[in-house]
């Protein structure tokens, strides 16, 4: 009886955490609209929302709203992508950059700008295709050598190094190719426009839908390939679909936010720590938390040294890394993915 009660408490705790993350996300989105070089009160925001011609209206519609959407989309997408990749690879150290997504997207963007300058509209598509190509290369390279989880990670590291070298080569040989190359590499959402966001938002919405649809299969895959197969799961197609979804999500995020794949590594761990090691609500919790975390980091990047701004990638690393280390130190037992 007592066990039953503890179990239901644990269940309630998970729901409370999920709702808490949703609330945190709403607060951070509101802050993201209000705070910046100019403070906009809620009344001004309302005024701006209905009269786009006024000063608050222009700030809201051209600067704050795209930026808020950008951090919301990129944070959620990268966190969800991280959950998928960590589960598929059974590796807590994996993130979107491990399957070569960041490197692929970066290389594609560099190539595009080198050969066909002035094609900002094509950037999201190129980034996504690059991410996808890198992911496929990693997947099939690993499959050719046995497709174990470890070979996938190794192939990912190798392909990422190769593609990063490609990006560096392009940037070195054609210095004008990527005008914002440093901010792309750090990652940031300042000056992001609706034109960039619209296609990326479609990819991310599709990716999140697919991720949530694949959740039951993902839970079974987490039991290990052989167990999953013996429970009747088609392991290879499931793994492929999950990786494809992860590449879609992360590639779309990288296309407008640059290389901030770090979110995809730490947010799933933070969500796991909050949920006390139960993965039932991991995907929704991490998705909400990712959006909230990146949005808050972006608000800080605007406020800390106002009127100057830091790229959000820098703030992210300064806050995220110590936080991540504290988290690791608190989980003394280490990650519970060791072989039984």
């Amino acid at each position: 009886m007592r066990c039953l009660r503890i179990f239901s408490m644990a269940k309630n705790r998970q729901l409370v955490i999920l709702l808490g993350c949703a609330a945190l996300l709403l607060v951070s989105l509101a802050l993201s609209l209000c705070l910046g070089a100019v403070w906009l009160s809620p009344a001004q925001l309302l005024e701006g929302a209905f009269c786009p011609g006024t000063v608050p209206g222009r700030i809201l519609w051209h600067t704050r709203l795209p930026r808020m959407l950008a951090t919301l989309l990129a944070g959620s997408a990268l966190a969800a992508s991280g959950v998928l990749i960590q589960t598929v690879l059974g590796n807590p150290l994996a993130g979107p950059n491990i399957i070569g997504v960041n490197a692929g997207a970066g290389f594609a963007v560099a190539l595009l700008s080198a050969f066909t300058p002035l094609t900002a509209r094509l950037t999201p598509l190129a980034a996504f295709l690059g991410a996808l190509a890198a992911m496929l290369l990693v997947y099939f390279a690993a499959k050719a050598t046995g497709a174990s989880r470890v070979t996938l990670v190794l192939a990912g590291v190798a392909v990422a190094s190769l593609l990063n070298a490609g990006t560096d080569a392009v940037v070195t040989l054609i210095p004008d190719a990527l005008p914002g190359s440093s901010s792309f590499r750090i990652g940031g959402v300042e000056g992001v426009s609706m034109v960039q966001l619209r296609p990326a938002a479609v990819y991310i919405a599709l990716g999140l839908l697919a991720a949530f649809a694949l959740r039951p299969a993902m839970d079974v895959l987490a039991l290990g390939d052989e167990t999953a197969q013996s429970l009747g799961l088609r392991v290879e197609p499931t793994r492929f679909a999950l990786l494809l979804t992860a590449a879609l999500l992360a590639g779309a995020a990288v296309s407008f936010a640059g290389l901030i794949g770090f979110v995809g590594l730490i947010v799933p761990h933070a969500a796991r720590a909050l949920l006390g090691g139960r993965v039932k609500h991991l995907l929704p919790t991490a998705t909400l938390l990712g959006g909230a975390f990146l949005t808050l980091c972006d608000v800080l990047s605007r406020v800390l040294f106002a009127p100057y701004e830091l790229p959000v990638g820098i703030v992210l690393s300064f806050i995220g890394c110590p936080f991540f280390l504290i988290l690791l130190a608190r989980r003394k037992g280490g990650h519970a993915r060791d072989r039984a």
């Binding site: 179990f7 644990a10 059974g90 987490a222 039991l223 290990g224 052989e226 167990t227 796991r272 090691g277 139960r278 993965v279 991991l282 519970a336 993915r337 060791d338 072989r339 039984a340």
Partner: peptide, 8 residues
């Protein structure tokens, strides 16, 4: 051998 998933 198998991984130990985060489940009860």
């Amino acid at each position: 051998s198998r991984p130990v998933p985060d489940l009860d």
